[in-house]
């Protein structure tokens, strides 16, 4: 049975697109058939994060308006043939698509794919309503900062109001060194305040910047963030995976790093 998952956050810049790229690629590594849809019309980004920006012919709005068939607009990933991207339109705006059209599109994609991941735009306006229209479940991405958590809370309320049955949380860009000295909220603090189930914790990792520079998602690599994403993917498929001990790993790394200083 296929699932439509929206990845959202409210606030911009917390890592929705990076999360979509890594979770999508990670699910493909688990041999699932996956399609990623960039629903941020006018501010297209998932294509560059995936490294597929040079292959775009048709986009989401073309499909909706019937200028092409869905298959023509889907771009196959360079590494995984079971992973595809439906890019957003760069020269249009959010009003080019309606929630009903999005629902119809996701329902059609269900026939071919196991997972349909929707990269949601920031904000709570029409772009958000479009992205959640066809979703079965939601993953809310936040960082341990007051503004991101406040927006996440608002989004969680809106998801409930729109009858999205399952909402889970990713705490992104956690810095264990700051948590340890009390200058960053803990994952427990964040979960307690937002009152939703945690599906993953992704540490702040400079390898994410490196991987985005190259247009190659980090998931599956030995980097700590790559491992965290791989675990999130397993949890999405229903597997029970223990959370990474970020503390311990950070210590080993900092000890190693200090050896070379």
């Amino acid at each position: 049975m296929s699932e439509v998952i929206v990845i959202t956050s409210g606030k911009g810049g917390v890592g929705k697109t990076t999360t979509t790229a890594n979770v999508g690629t990670g699910l493909a590594q688990l041999n699932k058939k996956v399609v990623l849809i960039d629903t941020d019309i006018g501010l297209r980004n998932l294509d560059v994060v995936m490294g597929l920006e040079n292959r775009i012919v048709y986009n989401l709005v073309d499909v909706i308006e019937g200028n092409c068939r869905i298959k023509q607009a889907l771009i196959k990933d360079r590494k995984y043939s079971n992973l595809a991207l439906l890019p957003s339109a760069q020269t249009r705006d959010k009003s080019a698509v309606t929630p009903e059209q999005m629902k119809k599109l996701t329902d059609e994609l269900r026939e071919e794919f196991d997972y349909i991941l929707l990269d949601c735009p920031a904000g709570i306006e029409q772009g958000f309503m479009n992205a959640i229209a066809g979703a079965d479940r939601a993953i809310v991405v936040t960082t341990p900062e007051v503004s991101a958590i406040r927006d996440a809370d608002r989004i969680i309320g809106l998801l409930e109001a729109n009858e999205i049955k399952q909402t889970q949380l990713i705490v992104n860009r956690l810095r264990m060194d700051m948590v340890k000295r009390g200058d960053m909220m803990t994952v427990e603090d964040v979960c307690e305040m937002l009152a939703v189930n945690l599906i993953g914790v992704v540490p702040d990792d400079e390898q994410i910047v490196v991987s985005t520079n190259k247009g190659e998602p980090l998931v599956g690599s030995d980097a700590l963030a790559g491992k965290a994403y791989a675990n999130i993917c397993k949890r999405i498929t229903g597997e029970d995976v223990p959370f990474l001990d970020l503390n311990k790993k950070a210590n080993v790394f900092s000890k190693l790093a200090s050896l070379f200083k």
Binding site: E145, I149, M185, D189, M193
Partner: peptide, 12 residues
Amino acid sequence: GDVAKDRLKFVL
């Protein structure tokens, strides 16, 4: 971190 948590609780 604690200051952030306390402030957020009221805001939320």
